[in-house]
Nucleic acid binder design. Sequence first.
DNA 1: GTACAGCTTCAAGTGCGGTTGAAGGTCAAG
DNA 2: CTTGACCTTCAACCGCACTTGAAGCTGTAC
Lengths: 131, 131
Amino acid sequence: MQIGEVARSVGVATSAIRYYEEAGLIPEPERTRSGYREYQPEILDRLGFIRAGQAVGLTLAQLRDVLAIRDRGDAPCTHVAALIDTRIDEIDQRISGLRKLRRELTALAETAAHFDPSDCSPGSVCRILTG
Amino acid sequence: MQIGEVARSVGVATSAIRYYEEAGLIPEPERTRSGYREYQPEILDRLGFIRAGQAVGLTLAQLRDVLAIRDRGDAPCTHVAALIDTRIDEIDQRISGLRKLRRELTALAETAAHFDPSDCSPGSVCRILTG
DNA sequence: GTACAGCTTCAAGTGCGGTTGAAGGTCAAG
DNA sequence: CTTGACCTTCAACCGCACTTGAAGCTGTAC
């Protein structure tokens, strides 16, 4: 398969596939006599894995590590499971940070609703935000 | 006040203050004979506003707009209130997206827990993630 | 006079995950 | 034989909010 066909099958841009190669996530494929990249079907699973990993918020660096384990011939299961657990913790922290921020913002919105613009002293930019 | 003193008072880097000037969030200050920036005390409130805005996730572009309204002599209250409401909506969307992702990840973690690495076929990278 | 902190400008780099553009080679159809 | 879709490499650019570095001037204390 040429790069365009692979790209269409998986739903990524050809430029992204070349970038993954450059970044060490996929191996350099064979070339045709004219220099075109010539992929084997295995690439589809590999790109599918990258897509799935990205979709849950893993970085390309993390996925590259998983792929390297796989390429050494080992099963990356436990490593993947650990990444998932770490990712869940990150999300929990992110959510609680956002909830805290939301509480602060609703308090500010409340202030804003009871705020008479004529109280708005020209000496400060905006007391709604700065309290 | 010189830039370093302002930076220490507000808790930002001098490079950030120069950047805000460049980006149009703060006006160009007077200069001493030797070319040093010489700030009036009003800058502290302005930088405090920028910090407060950033802390709730507003972008510099949004804050620049608020400051421009203030500089025209108008009260930016209603504009700020609208930004806050929009920001709350963004956060709600972000949180629900993260919650959805978390549900997917806990499902994957569950799969991983019941997964025998020997089931891990060498033909695919990792079936935990790709399902 | 000399050390040292502090200021100046300008250009370039950071992270992340790519995209875009230029300049050109390749391949099948008509 | 030309058109057009596809491929190649390489370098530069995107957003965002800065930081870093180089090269040099200023100001004060000793």
